[in-house]
Design a protein around this nucleic acid. Structure first.
Length: 825
RNA sequence: GCCGAAGUGGCGGAAUUGGCAGACGCGCACGACUCAAAAUCGUGUGGUCUUUGACCAUGUGGGUUCGACUCCCACCUUCGGCACCA
């Protein structure tokens, strides 16, 4: 001991020191060969290597690290890896603006951010590090693309797709927020392009159903996914169009209103439109209208308060049940890519249809009668959209709406004119990107063979270096070497696909790669995946609720169907951490309210920063940054340091055993065990690190209070326990102090302390005494006293007697160990 | 409009199963130490009043209960998602 002189807490010295030791001794390496130990996969969403860490990163890593360290100390074999979501636009923009190659820019950023992470003292197994932009990773992204292709889940189609003019690339629906690009906020326009899609719609139902299984997910996220998938049940109704010998289908959630149809409306882009107007007077006008609609932005067309604009095509359909002639219109408010791109208009019972009918003087026909107040078509000021009783509906008259929905659907099915149907809001995932810094799509186009996938053995299709970054066109198209290739099938000349994949594909399977990051033969080792997956605790921001988290679930289901994984959901439990707020706004460069992890580490040390972040709020809530709060946490660590330093002498060659004879020692001993229980439960059951830390603070306060009077064994026990409990939160200071009190082995290899239930027992408890529900006094009673005895003691108390004097005691409620309520009147 | 989450001191937050509202920390005030300051330590700190005590307090108004921050009903506010989705 004498070699370690008393000194002050100096995080700048001890933090790098221990980080080096941990790295050299590889104490966080995951040995998955070790059998018989329970496993735990703790995962934080891997970052985009933008250049530097921000507080949001520090927060998510701090949370993940506490969980990992806690689980390790509790005897788990923990997988806690880190990697880089390393493809993406900013790298390419840097290339355009500053002439740095995206690869160089990205790898340098990774290097820098990795060092920042190491300074935080996070316990990663760096052996498993991955970066999605490296060929040994994206080779397998390509292999998985081929798997999707083989299974018919990757296909090409021409469609009006979202185009971000600023990023000069297309975007998936999930990546358009309020009509704007999710990354750069520019207004998204529509472009007619032939693009690659993943058939996520095939999985819509399972993605929806399986949300039920995800008990460990926040309700909020599940709701967002449900909304996004947007399932509606109803019926498909087929209308014949005799004049062109075609049919048109509509989807409706209200087949019970079918007799009220007074017109059909097709989306302007509906494929039948040109044929409907061909040769008619309306042709020129209608086609011009269609053109105009195509040009209008999505936001203008789909915002709820936009005016409904339509036009009669001159064509008629036949009502499937009555044979009536139904005029066919086109209108802006009907979307081509939802349902069938056509709707039946029932003005009396749908608000939009009502407005449309009023504007264009279409007939209104009541077919659902309001049981409360009889509806008269001519007098209606708005649509009646509630349930009611069917009228004017032929054989269905008298049925309720609910019954009618079933009966009409059934009837349509029997006639072969439709039937029960389901529609989803979710669209297929557009995965093509006209950009360089992404994973090349392993496809070639051959004049003779058509679309040919690159055989697995020829992967990876490498990103070429002879490209031009001019910010105008996709750089990949500028590489002669890349574009011109030979067809893998016929060896003839062929052209490579120059689109790269959406980077959300890279991140849809990375959590599998960590289990076998160095496997050169396959994306992952199914045996190892079986051991580790699903992820036990996944931690990240809410912003990925319907992006990454939906895509990753989709991938897992496809891999399951392909027999590559044995589970259908990748993330058993999800922790969505809140934002970091300062002065009422999210920390951001533009607001100028940024505090960087680096400056906190330099000024106070990583331990202080971590402790503050975990203490200031529960992980799922927004965290209000407070400089004085950070100071407070730093003061606390200083107090811990001094407390331990003052008592180093207790930890000599032979440790004193706790005596626990006097009252102070008993109290301290009990507090120590109570703190173990509290901290353990808070971490393990609730993930409420703020209250765990406050309990540790209370333990420190309790030790301070009794350090002069408690026996040295009890004191030593309390101090040692304190360090163990604090270790997951503040790994450096606890490691240093652990060694300073004479231990040789790392504190992070110790077992988590166990509390002794017997130690929590007390002889006497203080209970609250209420008279008629109001707190009047407190009383100390023997802990073992039964309800009757407690009641006697309370009723005999002088203060209680002054309240019940002259009144009748009607009832006495005794909550053992807590409270007594005397009801008088 | 529909769905979801939340609303508690000057501030961040606590109260885990319906049982002492405000733990812990910040801030503030006073005191000790000091020539002084910083640091540190100690004490106090929801509000009101007629202050050894009582009353009022968990967004608002009702309700259930011996007892409600917690459960029920209605409403208000904030945040988030979806929204002309047929």
């Amino acid at each position: 001991m004498s070699t370690l002189a008393t000194k002050t807490y100096n995080p700048q010295e001890i933090e790098p020191k221990w980080q080096k030791v941990w790295e050299e001794q590889q104490i966080y390496r995951t040995e998955d060969e070790e059998e018989g130990k329970p496993r735990f996969y703790a995962l934080e969403m891997f970052p985009y290597p933008s250049g530097r860490l921000h507080m949001g990163h520090m927060r998510v890593y701090s949370i993940g690290d506490v969980i990992s360290r806690f689980k390790r100390m509790n005897g788990y074999q923990v997988l806690h890896p880190m990697g880089w979501d390393a493809f993406g636009l900013p790298a390419e923009n840097a290339a355009i603006q500053r002439g740095i190659h995206p690869r160089k820019w990205t790898l340098e950023n990774i290097q820098h951010m990795k060092e920042q992470q190491k300074r935080l003292g996070v316990s990663y197994d760096w052996e498993r590090e991955i970066a999605t932009c490296l060929p040994d990773y994206y080779k397998f992204t390509q292999e998985l693309f081929l798997l999707f292709y083989e299974r018919g889940l990757a296909y090409r189609k021409k469609a009006a797709v979202n185009w971000c003019p600023s990023c000069t690339t297309v975007l998936a629906n999930e990546q358009v927020e309020d009509g704007k690009c999710w990354r750069c906020d520019s207004e998204v326009t529509k472009k007619e392009l032939e693009q690659w899609f993943f058939k996520i719609t095939d999985y819509a139902e399972r993605l929806l159903q399986d949300l039920e299984k995800l008990d460990g997910w926040p309700e909020r996220v599940k709701t967002m996914q449900r909304n996004w998938i947007g399932k509606s049940t109803g019926a498909e109704v087929v209308f014949a169009i005799p004049e062109i010998g075609e049919t048109v289908s509509v989807f409706t959630t209200r087949p019970d209103t079918l007799y009220g149809v007074t017109c059909l409306v097709l989306a302007p882009e509906h494929p039948l439109v040109p044929r409907l107007v061909k040769g008619k007077d309306t042709e020129a006008e209608v086609l011009a209208f269609v053109e105009q609609m195509r040009r209008e932005s999505e936001i203008a067309r789909t915002s709820a308060d936009a005016e409904k604009v339509g036009m009669f095509t001159g064509a008629y359909a036949e009502h499937p049940l009555t044979g009536e002639r139904i005029p066919i219109w086109i209108a802006n408010y009907v979307l081509v890519d939802y349902g069938t791109g056509a709707v039946m208009v029932v003005p009396a019972h749908d608000e939009r249809d009502f407005q449309f009918a009023k504007k264009y003087q279409l007939p209104i026909k009541v077919v659902i009668q309001n049981p409360e107040r009889t509806l008269v078509a001519e007098e209606m000021a708005e649509a009646y959209v509630d349930d009611g009783v069917m009228v004017n509906s032929g054989p269905f008259d008298g049925l309720s709406s609910r019954e009618g929905i079933k009966a009409v659907s059934q009837h349509l099915a029997e006639l072969g004119k439709g039937g029960p149907a389901v529609s989803y809001r979710i669209r297929d995932w557009l995965i093509s990107r006209q950009r360089y810094w992404g994973c090349p799509i392993p496809i070639v186009y051959c004049d003779r063979c058509g679309i040919v996938p690159v055989p697995k053995e020829q992967l990876p299709v490498l990103l070429p270096d002879d490209v031009v970054f001019d910010g105008k066109s996709n750089p990949l198209t500028t590489s002669e070497l890349f574009v011109h290739t030979t067809c893998p099938r016929c060896q003839g000349p062929a052209r490579r696909e120059t689109d790269t994949m959406d980077t959300f594909i890279d991140s849809s399977w990375y959590f599998y790669r960590y289990t076998s990051a160095k496997d050169t033969e396959r994306p992952f080792d199914p045996e190892k995946v079986k051991k580790w997956l699903p992820v036990d605790k996944y931690i990240g921001g809410i912003e990925h609720a319907v992006l990454h988290l939906l895509y990753a679930r989709f991938f897992t289901k496809v891999l399951y169907d392909a027999g590559l994984v044995d589970h259908t959901e990748p993330f058993k439990s999800l922790l969505t951490q809140g934002m970091v707020i300062k002065d009422g706004a999210k920390m951001s460069k533009s607001k100028g309210n940024v505090v960087s992890p680096d400056e906190i580490v330099e000024k106070y040390g990583a331990d202080t920063g971590r402790l503050f972040i975990l203490f200031a709020a529960p992980p799922d809530r927004d965290l209000e940054w407070s400089d004085s709060g950070v100071e407070g946490c730093h003061r606390f660590l200083n107090r811990v340091w001094r407390l331990v330093e003052e008592h180093v002498h207790l930890f000599g060659a032979e440790r004193p055993a706790p005596q626990v004879q006097d009252e102070a020692s008993k109290a301290l001993y009990r507090l120590t065990h109570a703190t173990i229980k509290k901290v353990t439960d808070d971490i393990e059951l609730r993930y409420h690190f703020n209250t765990a830390i406050s309990a540790i603070m209370e333990l420190v306060n309790g030790i301070q209070e009794r350090k002069a009077v408690a026996d040295s064994g009890t004191l030593a026990f309390a101090i040692e326990t304190l360090l163990l409990l604090l270790a997951p939160f503040a790994p450096h200071i606890t490691e240093e102090l652990w060694h300073r009190i004479g231990h040789q082995e790392s504190i992070h290899r110790q077992s988590w302390p166990k509390y002794d239930p017997a130690a929590l027992e007390v002889d006497e408890v203080e209970i609250a005494v209420q008279i008629n529900g109001k707190l009047r006094t407190k009383l100390t009673v023997p802990a073992k006293a039964d309800k009757g005895e407690v009641e006697q003691l309370v009723l005999a108390d002088d203060r209680v007697r002054t309240y019940i004097e002259g009144k009748t005691v009607r009832k006495v409620i005794v909550v053992p160990g807590k409270l007594v309520n005397v009801v008088v009147g």
